[in-house]
Each structure stands twice: as C-alpha cells, then as structure tokens.
C-alpha cells in the first residue's frame, strides 16, 4: 500500500454526469468545444478523453454525445436519484426494470424516427 492519498474536496453531486470510454474516445475535444455550460476540460495529455470538471453544471442536454464523432465514446449518466426514478413494467410478465439495474433486459435497438 504505497499509493499516495491526496487531499481533495468531496466529489460534487452529481459525481459523474458523463463517462468516457478511453478505448473509443480520440481526445478530439469536440464535446469540450460545444458544451453549452462548459462542464468539460481538455485532458492535459493530448489524445486522452476530456475531464468532467463541473458536473453540477451539466444540463443533461446530450449535445456532447450528438457531437461526438465516435459512437460509444461518451455515455450520459443521469444522477442516481433520477436513474432510480426511471422504472418500467413488462406488460406480459409483470417484471420490473429500471435504468442502471444490475441485470438489465436486452437493449431495444430501434433508432428514433428520422
């Protein structure tokens, strides 16, 4: 256990707002450029995913995801209080599901109209 522990403030709430997949993200910073509230900062290391600096200023508009040239690089993460509110019931079986559950049902891949 030699890893240093640093003095940092408590994480702001919501903690994440977004997650970047470093294997997919090119570090192009297109999302950083367009974010209406400037939640993100470029990574000091070129080519690496941006850093969520101000998650509590995120408006959850999804503009970053739409702007991203690499599908799957950015995932929007609603605050936990909202994830547990998004519930649904399968009509045939009565099963209950929610966004963020442990064993989710198969995704519905139907694209939006247009």
């Amino acid at each position: 256990m030699s890893k240093k522990i640093y003095m940092v403030p408590n994480p702001p709430t919501p903690n994440r707002a977004l997650a970047f997949d470093p294997d997919v993200c090119l570090g192009c910073n297109s999302c950083v450029d367009v974010c209406p509230t400037d939640v993100l900062m470029p990574n000091p290391e070129t080519g690496k995913p941006p850093i969520v600096l101000y998650p509590e200023e995120c408006w959850y508009c999804g503009g970053c995801v739409e702007e991203c040239p690499c599908t799957g690089a950015i995932t929007m993460i609603h605050p936990a209080s909202q994830r547990i509110s998004m519930n649904w019931k399968r009509k045939s079986s009565g099963e209950l599901f929610r966004v963020g559950m442990k064993n989710p049902p198969a995704p519905n891949n139907k694209p939006p109209s247009g």
């Binding site: 508009c61 929007m76 998004m86 599901f97 049902p105 519905n108």
Partner: peptide, 10 residues
C-alpha cells in the same frame, strides 16, 4: 437523455 438512455436500458 431519454430515448437512447431508456432504449439502451431495455
């Protein structure tokens, strides 16, 4: 935020 999030979740 809604269509993609909920559809992906099933």
């Amino acid at each position: 935020p809604i269509y993609e999030t909920l559809n992906k979740a099933g």
